[in-house]
Nucleic acid binder design. Structure first.
Length: 476
DNA sequence: CTATGGCACGGATT
DNA sequence: AATCCGTGCCATAG
């Protein structure tokens, strides 16, 4: 059912109606998630015709909702609230790119599409549900809907306890359970707590350096300052061991569960772009056949729609403001259409991309197939600039949790660079640039010697002379 | 003398 | 129209 409405909206939005529409769609497409969030928020606050319905709260009584089921308290009016929305923009919109051989966006068979639009809340709830007492489920739902963007609990536990009139310990019990769900650490009250939970859970299946949790509780300060010697002293271990712990933490843990992995930390510098959140998330669907799920992240949760009351008010009680209101109404509806189209374009684009770059996404740089924005534009029957805008500035999260700029999928030379790295890694005796160039040419990549040098520079690889026998430096 | 890095130019891409 | 990228030529470091 969602598929159908989705497809309908796709077709109907294919032809822009006005130039204004077109222009706005274009500009929206350019915006990344955060920018769009600002834009939408400002629009909402200035335009009374727009309203946002939080999907995680019951529309009428604003109690936390569980998944898609209507609020149990006021189910009767809960339902008819739903029949008037102009548009439904989910916080994520999902679909599946099949692994190999579905050719065009149009012939995906229905069962390959994940039917539910699932956001973090329901995702986690589904995991937790089997372990929960039935009467605890509302509590879990409440906790989940109180998460902030980072997946941390933004409301004091006491408050939740009061709301439900149950002892704090019970809330904590539920929360313990939630924290152990994927992404591990959700629902923690602080980044620190999230780290601890993750360490704990990880230690059940993997090797965790001893004292890691103590390092977190007691040495967080030192960790963030990268004073490993001091950390070592604090825990009375060697600096090397302290370093190992630090590396373990930065590689395996994430203080903000809902965010992606905090980037490649090279030499301890975790700052800069790392705290960006992705615009699109690609993950692997576990149980069925390893399909890739693409989720376009919307900057806000809930439905954005025309305020029905506002519309009625205009119709029934015309006043001297009617003109202005009418204009607002039109602006609102335009915005919604444009947002819809933005989303739609992204979805279509990602679908194609995931198909083409399937191997790259799963197996890394070497499998990137070189494509140009233009070629995609051709396949999607849109203008190149549309693709350009859609790609620029967007971040993508891969199944392995790494965050990459979307433009990486269009990197012409990445493929060859990866190959080059392999060559350099494999060789025992350092090769000079022209030798590398020769090997690459033999393998079918015709590039010049000078270019090898350039690539080396990009990858931060030293000149052949300088790299006698050093390793363990550049995983990227 | 050889291997590299710098500068700059032309073609492709956006 | 602006930008990016591969490449050639040349100066320089080793």
């Amino acid at each position: 059912m969602l598929n159908q409405s989705f497809r309908q909206s796709q077709e109907q939005s294919l032809r822009p109606l006005t130039t204004a529409h077109l222009a706005q769609t274009m500009s929206l497409l350019l915006l990344s998630r955060q920018e769009l969030k600002q834009k939408v928020e400002s629009e909402i606050s200035t335009n009374p015709a727009l309203e946002v319905v939080d999907m995680n709260k019951c529309p009428s009584c604003s109690r936390p909702l569980i998944g898609n089921t209507p609020c149990s308290v006021c189910r009767r009016n809960g339902d008819n609230v739903d029949d008037t929305p102009i548009i439904f923009i989910s916080s994520r919109s999902d679909f599946v790119g099949s692994s190999s051989n579905s050719q065009s966006a149009d012939d995906i068979s229905p069962d390959e599409i994940t039917p539910a639009r699932e956001d973090l809340h329901s995702y986690v709830l589904r995991q937790a549900a089997p372990d929960l007492e039935t009467q605890d489920i509302p509590i879990a739902a409440h906790i989940l809907s109180s998460l902030d963007d980072d997946g941390l609990l933004s409301v004091p536990i006491v408050e939740i306890a009061q709301y439900h009139h149950v002892p704090i310990s019970r809330i904590e019990k539920v929360n313990e359970l939630i924290k152990r769900c994927e992404p591990v650490g959700v629902g923690s009250t602080s980044p620190l707590e999230a780290l601890l939970v993750q360490t704990d859970v990880l230690s059940e299946t993997n090797y965790v350096p001893p004292l890691a949790s103590r390092a977190i509780t007691e040495g967080m300060e030192l960790l963030s300052r990268h004073s490993y010697t001091e950390l070592g002293r604090l825990l009375s271990i060697s600096t090397d061991d302290a370093l190992e712990i630090a590396r373990f933490i930065s590689e395996n843990l994430n203080p903000y569960p809902a965010r992606s992995h905090w980037g490649n930390i090279r030499d301890g510098r975790a700052s800069k772009q790392d705290y960006q959140s992705p615009d699109v998330i690609i993950s692997i669907l576990n149980h069925p056949k390893q399909n890739l799920v693409v989720e376009i992240i919307s900057p806000y949760t809930g439905r954005l729609r025309i305020n029905q009351l506002f519309r009625d008010a205009i119709r029934e009680a015309p006043s001297e403001n009617a003109e202005k209101w009418q204009a607002d109404l039109e602006k609102a509806s335009l915005l919604i259409k444009c947002l819809q189209q933005r989303n739609n374009t992204l979805v279509r684009l990602m679908h194609l991309l995931v198909e083409i770059q399937h191997d790259f996404i799963l197996q890394g740089d070497i499998h990137l197939v070189p494509i140009t924005r233009a070629s995609l534009a051709d396949k999607l029957n849109v203008h190149e600039s549309t693709i350009s805008r859609a790609v620029s500035g967007k971040m993508l999260q891969l199944p392995n949790k790494s965050l990459i700029p979307m433009s990486k999928l269009f990197d012409r030379s990445l493929r060859i660079r990866a190959e080059m790295i392999n060559i350099i890694l494999e060789e025992i005796k350092p090769l000079n640039d022209s030798q590398i160039a020769d090997i690459l040419n033999e393998r079918g990549f015709s590039i010049a010697r000078r270019t090898v040098a350039k690539y080396r520079a990009i990858e931060g690889i030293l000149a052949s002379r300088m790299r006698r026998s050093m390793h363990s430096s550049n995983p990227e």
